[in-house]
Design a protein around this nucleic acid. Structure first.
Lengths: 225, 225
DNA sequence: CCATGGATCGGGAAGTTATCCCGAATATTA
DNA sequence: TAATATTCGGGATAACTTCCCGATCCATGG
């Protein structure tokens, strides 16, 4: 860790850049090797200087810092990116990390935070400063995984009757209940259901409900009241 | 920062505890004031010593570190929790943060990481070390949403275990899947489920899901994407 | 006309899951 | 320590799922 990490600052406010530089220079493990006032300029400079880190303001005159992050990420995957933003809203944060940022610090934070963030990011760790509430992070962590991509193309392959059955099932009716509604045997409904699941690649009732929700077949917002 | 932060280490392997202690003592901003070899012991010690930080191994003999995190969080909301884990799988990480952890470090990481994590966590920042791939974080960040408040009289009558089971069920896991997650028999899960349904007056899986959606236990908006 | 194929309807059998009722082993609390 | 609550799981039966099968109807094209 004797070596200094090179940093480029990309922000359109010179004063703010100056502030960042001052803060960063407090830690001799970092060295600001360049500054840019726009996304384009920043991209050029990154190409030329190949810095270890880039500090990017989320709002730039010519393009968003998010977009710049994506570009940087694509062309210089080794360069770590720390987003500096005035927003602590979840949308921005989520977008930033999706775009490939490794850290996120809000402008209102203490200077300590910035250095902390730089240190973490320099190591390749993810960093998110504390102005972000626990609730937000908790929520971010709530999405499990699995994709199971769903196209309504598949739904279109269902026969009319199958679609009809599916709507009832999606509303939470049991096979028996659907059968009564349609004046057919529960057995038939179950067969329809099996065919539906097969065609759509589903494996449980709840997946069926989610699928239906995605297609707008049912309105899950109604559940909340 | 003149004051030292007090730390308790909760891990069932004395050797590993020793290692942690050595690493932590390298930084004089931290002081290990206690060690525990089990969740229960750790909880007691925390009650007694009120440390600033608790370092928790994710796998403990008597209960999971996740569960311990929840308990600690509930009783000592000021105490920050850093999870140390041998797993870098997304499930564990997400669970840890949901449970209320503020940091997550894998055991294979360099000692630097631990200190880095402690420093961040001590400030209240969230920390997640770099053995976690970018893809994982990107995945975690895929869900923007709002806070969830659980305020329901009936839901409160559920035992902690029942609530835990309910959350999994609401996410669409089968009894068997929940059983595997909790390392108990599917039979037990089914009994829990039956009790839950009874207490809440529900009669089908989908009603349970709707109930959970209403409480904000799950976010159905996620289904739409 | 009638063969073809899709859609709808249902049965049978085997496997899986739910339901209800019970008891045992631990906490927790009085 | 006694009483209570919680967690865990077994057993028996009912219910549901799954897979495979066949019957009917109906539109289409040879």
């Amino acid at each position: 860790m004797a070596e200094q990490k090179s940093i480029i600052i990309i922000d359109d406010h010179p004063l703010f850049r100056e502030g960042l530089k001052t803060i960063i220079s407090r830690d001799d493990r970092f060295k600001v090797v360049g500054e840019a006032g726009s996304g384009h300029e920043g991209l050029e400079m990154t190409k030329r200087l190949k810095p270890d880190l880039v500090v990017v303001d989320i709002s730039l005159p010519d393009q968003s810092g998010i977009q710049l992050t994506r570009d940087l990420r694509r062309h210089f995957s080794e360069t770590k990116i720390l987003i500096v933003s005035m927003h602590s809203k979840i949308d921005y944060i989520a977008e930033a990390f999706q775009a490939g940022a490794t850290g996120y610090v809000v402008k209102e934070s203490a200077s300590e935070r910035l250095l902390q963030g730089l240190k973490s990011v320099a190591k390749g760790d993810y960093y998110l400063d504390s102005s972000v509430s626990h609730a937000v992070v908790e929520n971010l962590m709530k999405s499990p995984l699995k994709a199971a991509k769903i196209t309504d193309a598949d739904y279109a392959t269902l026969t009319p009757r199958e679609q009809e059955v599916m709507r009832f099932l999606a509303e939470g009716l049991s096979s028996k209940a659907v059968a009564e509604k349609l004046f057919i045997s529960p057995k038939t409904v179950e067969n329809h259901r099996a065919n539906i699941m097969n065609k759509l690649g589903l494996h449980s009732t709840i997946e069926l409900v989610r699928y239906a929700a995605k297609l707008g077949l049912i309105d899950v917002d109604l559940w909340k009241d």
